[in-house]
Amino acid sequence: MLKVIAACGSGMGSSQIIKMKIEKIFKKLGISVQIHHSSVSEAKNLASNYDVVFCSEALKGNFANAAANGTIVIGLKNLLSEQEIEQKIIENVVNKK
């Protein structure tokens, strides 16, 4: 079970949109996941407990520490593009296993 967290500035907008979208793509790819969502300030402290962090490209810099500790950090340019999400999951998660 892959542990995933979606983060955004407030925890109620884009992180929930990311959660909806990645749930769909992980299901399509047959990867079982547990997805949480939260604000960046909370997620920053929790990120190292997760396998993958998803956030907007603009927020990626907040997770440099977690990335240095081996957490995969994926920044999305277009949160609504399932194509971008799928491509980035394949590139960063599937091919890294």
Partner: peptide
């Protein structure tokens, strides 16, 4: 929020979802 975290509320080309905390 935008000043602190950047323009992340622009979620896709041409689309913005202004919001703060619940």
């Amino acid at each position: 929020n935008v000043k602190e975290y950047g323009p992340y509320i622009v979620i896709a080309p041409d689309i913005c979802i202004p919001h703060a905390q619940e």
